[in-house]
């Protein structure tokens, strides 16, 4: 086999190989779905983020409007500081409430945004004041049992 034919075949091989990587990146993965669209960052503090992870979705009314970009712990207040990157197309009022939710009982964890009535809108770098932390099932259960016990004691 001569050199030109080998060059051609290797060229074809490398091209379709790179094509496959591109296919994986764009069609299978979500390389460009969010990172390319113009966006802005907002922060929110939570007492507990539960199972929230990097790149977890941020949803408003069930629609994905952004992704979690970073999660860190504030060493002074011991609160979790979650930075979210939101789609520029969607604006939220200053008094929006951010909450940590779970889709279904065992589903993925996401940040839910509930818009308020303020006319001023969140801007890049703003802080969301009102948050609702993740529901920790163990705490719920112990609280429930404690309440029951307290009720029982009162009833006697």
């Amino acid at each position: 086999m001569n050199r030109a034919a080998i060059d051609l075949w290797v060229g074809v091989f490398v091209a379709i190989g790179l094509g496959a990587i591109l296919f994986l990146a764009l069609k299978v993965g979500n390389l460009l779905t969010l990172d390319r669209t113009p966006s802005y960052r907002v922060e929110a503090n939570f007492d507990n983020i539960g199972g929230l992870k990097l790149r977890s979705p941020v949803k408003a009314a069930g629609v994905v409007v952004g992704r979690v970009e970073s999660i860190r712990l504030d060493p002074k207040t011991y609160a979790a500081v979650v930075t979210m990157r939101l789609d520029r197309d969607y604006e939220f009022s200053k008094d929006t409430i951010a909450s940590i939710n779970t889709s279904g009982l065992l589903g993925e964890v996401y940040v839910g945004l509930d818009a308020g009535g303020d006319t001023a809108m969140l801007k890049d770098g703003d802080h969301i004041g009102k948050t609702q932390s993740a529901v920790v099932i163990e705490k719920l259960i112990s609280q429930f049992l404690f309440d029951k016990a307290a009720q029982g004691g009162a009833g006697k």
């Binding site: 299978v28 979500n30 390389l31």
Partner: peptide, 19 residues
Amino acid sequence: FWGQMQAGVNFWPDITNGI
């Protein structure tokens, strides 16, 4: 099929780690 796939597979780190 494609939508769930895109939502669940991240280029970074899933695909890059495979590479």
